[in-house]
Design a protein around this nucleic acid. Structure first.
Length: 594
RNA sequence: GGGGGUGUAGCUCAGUUGGUUAGAGCACGUGCCUGUCACGCACGGGGCCGAGGGUUCGAGUCCCUUCACUCCCGCCA
C-alpha cells in the first residue's frame, strides 16, 4: 500500500461507501461551522469534501490549519444525504468523515489566492508560478498541453514518422531572427547559437535517408515578446518528408490537424479540405496573408470605377490618377442599419490612422442609386458595375478605402474584422483552417529597393527549373506555404530546394555570390551535393495550437514556466550575473555601462 | 528603439474639483455558529498610495523624472 493514499481526491464515489481510506492533498477551502467543519481536499485529480466534528479530540487544532496546507488524512467514506449532494463534483455524492490526519507540508501566508477566479498581476503569478499553476484553469491548460503533445506524437508515429533529437548547441546563421549565443570554453572567442528552428538539421536528416522525421522541437529566438509570442523559446511540431510534393505535406498536416482539433475541442471545423488560397488572392480578398475565414466578408478592388467619367467622387479620383487604388468591403443587407453603425466604422477607421472609410448603400428607388454621404457621386451605371465586381445587391452597403496598396490592405484587413464583429457574422464556435500558397520567392526591400528573399532562401521555386526566368525575379513563385487557423498563422513550410546549382542562381539574384553562399551555408550546400532527395516539410507552432484549443489569448496561459516581457524568469532569477571565475574560463569580460 | 495602459493593505479593487484620521471584498487573527459547498455573524491587526523631485497653506489626486508589469509598433528567414 502507498504510504500517503489509497485513493486520489477525484475518484471516490458511492461505490466506495463505508470504505476506510487515506487521502493526501492540499486544503483547498474550509467551511467552519464552529462545531462542524467542511474541508475541500484537492489534488491533481479532483476535490473531495471531508468533514470533522467538534467531538473529535483534534477538532480545535484542525480548525487552525491554513488553506494550502498539505495533509494526509484517514477517514471513512460516507454517503451524502440527497439534499446535500454536490453535482458540480465527481465525488459529490460522498464525503469523508475524518478519523485522523497528519500535516505533510506547512504553508506561509499565501501571496495570492488559489481558490479564486480573480485575475491577478502577472508579476506575482510568475514569481510564484508553482502556486499559480495550482489554480484550476491554468492547471487544466497545462494538462491539455501534455495530452495534445502525446496525441500528436502518437499520430505522427502512426503516419510513419520517426522522432529524432537535433542539437541544441549549434552554429549561428546569418539569416533570420537574432540568435541566442553561448560562449565556448574550449574555443575561446567562439560562440554556439541556440537553434531558431532545426531547419538545416531536418533537411540533413532527409539527405541521410530517414524519409520522414518529426520532433516536438524547442526553438530559440532572441526577439521581443508579444501576447502570442514568448520571449526566448517556443515549441514547434517540426516535420520533414522525402520524395514529396506540396500536396503530400498538406495531406499529412490536414489529417493531423483535423484529428487533434476534433479530439480536443467541441468546436466545428468549417473545412475538412482546407482551402488553398494563393498569396496574391489572399492579399486582395482579405488584405492579409493570415485571413480569418470564419469571417465571410471579402474585399474587392474598385479602382476602375474611379476612372469613369460618370463618377464624380473627386477626392478618390484625384488619388487614383496619382496611382492610388480603391478597394472596399460589401456588407449584405445593411440598408436599415442606423447611421451610427456607418459613422462608427468611419470613426473607428480614422482612429486607426486611416483617412476614414467612404460608404454608401445601394437602393432601388425607381432606378439604382447610392444612398449615404458619397452615394450621390455615383451614376446608376457605375453602381451597376460596382455590383457586378463585388456581387453586391440592392440593400447592401459598400465601405471604400483609397490609398497605396499597402495602406489599403492594412486598413481593410482590420475593417474586415471590425465590421465582422459589429455585424456579428463571425462564427466564433468554429475553426477555419486554410493554406496560403504560391508565395513570391523574392520581394523588393522597401528601403533599399534591393531584391531580397521574401521567406526562406531554401525554398524551391515553382516551374520547370530550366525555364525559370531569373531576369524577372519578382515574378518567381515558390513552393512556400503557410497554414492559418482563425486568422492565426500556425506555421510556414516549403518544398525545399535540393539542387545546389539552382540555389547558387537564386542566391545570386539576392546579391550573394557563390563564395558567400559556400561560406555561410557550407554544411547545407555540401550535403545537397551528394545525392539529396526532393523533400519538404512544415513546423506548426505547438503553443498556438494549444492556445486555440484552450481559447486563450496569451501564450503564458498555456506555458508552464514562461518568462516575462523582458525575458526574465522571476521565479528562477534568470538571467543572472555570473562570477569572475566563470567569465575568465570563457575568456569573456563584461563592458561596464556607466 | 518607439507609443499606449496600469501601479493604493498579502490579493483584487474604490478613492469626486487638491482639503480632516485613505476605504471595501477576499485572505490573516480572535470569538460565536452542526449541513456547508463563494457557508454565515461580530470584532481586530494590517498602508513609504511604485520611487525621487517639484507646485501648493495643503498632494493618493496636479507637473517633471524614474522604475516595474502589461498591450501594441519596430523585430520575429
Amino acid at each position: 500500500m502507498n504510504k500517503y493514499r489509497t485513493h486520489t481526491c477525484g475518484e471516490l464515489t458511492i461505490k466506495d461507501k463505508s470504505k476506510d481510506i487515506f487521502l493526501s492533498g492540499w486544503i483547498n477551502k474550509k467551511r467552519d461551522h464552529g462545531n462542524l467543519l467542511f474541508l475541500d481536499l484537492r489534488d491533481n485529480y479532483g476535490i473531495t469534501q471531508c468533514l470533522i466534528e467538534n467531538s473529535h479530540p483534534k477538532f480545535k487544532e484542525f480548525e487552525k490549519l491554513p488553506l494550502e496546507t498539505v495533509i494526509k488524512l484517514n477517514g471513512k467514506v460516507l454517503e451524502r444525504s440527497k439534499d446535500t449532494i454536490n453535482k458540480e463534483l465527481k465525488t459529490g455524492e460522498i464525503e469523508i468523515a475524518i478519523v485522523s490526519y497528519e500535516v505533510l507540508g506547512n504553508t506561509k501566508e499565501l501571496p495570492l489566492p488559489i481558490f479564486s477566479d480573480q485575475d491577478y498581476s502577472e508579476e506575482i503569478r510568475l514569481k510564484y508560478r508553482f502556486l499559480d499553476l495550482r489554480r484550476k484553469k491554468i492547471h487544466q491548460n497545462i494538462i491539455l498541453r501534455s495530452k495534445v503533445i502525446s496525441f500528436i506524437r502518437s499520430e505522427m508515429q502512426k503516419l510513419g514518422f520517426l522522432e529524432f533529437q537535433t542539437p541544441i548547441l549549434t552554429s549561428s546563421s546569418p539569416e533570420g531572427a537574432r540568435d541566442f549565443l553561448v560562449p565556448s570554453r574550449l574555443n575561446p572567442g567562439k560562440f554556439y547559437a541556440l537553434p531558431q528552428a532545426p531547419q538545416q538539421f531536418k533537411q540533413l536528416i532527409m539527405v541521410s535517408g530517414f524519409d520522414k522525421y518529426f520532433q516536438i522541437a524547442p526553438c530559440f529566438r532572441d526577439e521581443d515578446a508579444r501576447a502570442d509570442r514568448s520571449p526566448g523559446e517556443f515549441y514547434q511540431l517540426d516535420l520533414e518528408m522525402s520524395f514529396v510534393e506540396q500536396k503530400d505535406v498538406f495531406e499529412v498536416v490536414e489529417k493531423l490537424m483535423i484529428n487533434v482539433f476534433n479530439k480536443f475541442s467541441n468546436k466545428k471545423l468549417l473545412y475538412k479540405n482546407f482551402p488553398q488560397i494563393p498569396y496574391s488572392e489572399s492579399m486582395l480578398k482579405y488584405g492579409t496573408d493570415k485571413p480569418d475565414l470564419r469571417n465571410p466578408l471579402v474585399i474587392n478592388d474598385f479602382t476602375e470605377i474611379f476612372k469613369r467619367d460618370d463618377v464624380s467622387f473627386d477626392i478618390f479620383k484625384k488619388l487614383v490618377k496619382k496611382g492610388s487604388i480603391v478597394r472596399g468591403i460589401v456588407t449584405k443587407n445593411t440598408k436599415d442599419h442606423p447611421r451610427s453603425f456607418f459613422d462608427g466604422i468611419d470613426k473607428w477607421a480614422k482612429e486607426q490612422g486611416a483617412s476614414g472609410l467612404a460608404y454608401f448603400t445601394i437602393e432601388d428607388n425607381s432606378g439604382i442609386k447610392g444612398k449615404g454621404p458619397v452615394g450621390k457621386f455615383f451614376s446608376e451605371n457605375s453602381i451597376k458595375e460596382t455590383m457586378k465586381i463585388s456581387k453586391a445587391e440592392v440593400g447592401d452597403s459598400i465601405f471604400l478605402a483609397c490609398g497605396t496598396i499597402k495602406d489599403v490592405e492594412k486598413i481593410l484587413s482590420e475593417a474586415r474584422d471590425k465590421i465582422g464583429r459589429d455585424l456579428k457574422v463571425i462564427n466564433y464556435d468554429s475553426f477555419a483552417f486554410c493554406w496560403i500558397i504560391d508565395y513570391p520567392m523574392f520581394e523588393e526591400d522597401e528601403k533599399s529597393k534591393k531584391i531580397v528573399f521574401s521567406h526562406n532562401p531554401f525554398s524551391m521555386p515553382q516551374g520547370n527549373i530550366k525555364d525559370i526566368n531569373f531576369s524577372e525575379p519578382l515574378k518567381i513563385k515558390a513552393y512556400q506555404y503557410d497554414i492559418v487557423c482563425n486568422g492565426i498563422e500556425l506555421s510556414s513550410g516549403a518544398i525545399r530546394n535540393h539542387v545546389p546549382e539552382l540555389m547558387y542562381k537564386l542566391f545570386l539574384v539576392a546579391g550573394y555570390d557563390k563564395k558567400t553562399v559556400d561560406k555561410n551555408f557550407s554544411g547545407m550546400i555540401n550535403a545537397l551535393s551528394y545525392g539529396a532527395p526532393p523533400h519538404g516539410g512544415i513546423a506548426p507552432g505547438i503553443d498556438r495550437i494549444i492556445m486555440l484549443l484552450a481559447e486563450e489569448k496569451n501564450i503564458r496561459e498555456v506555458t508552464m514556466f514562461p518568462m516575462n516581457q523582458n525575458a526574465q524568469d522571476l521565479m528562477m532569477n534568470a538571467p543572472s550575473e555570473i562570477n569572475e571565475e566563470q567569465l575568465k574560463e570563457l575568456n569573456l569580460s563584461i563592458k561596464k555601462n556607466k
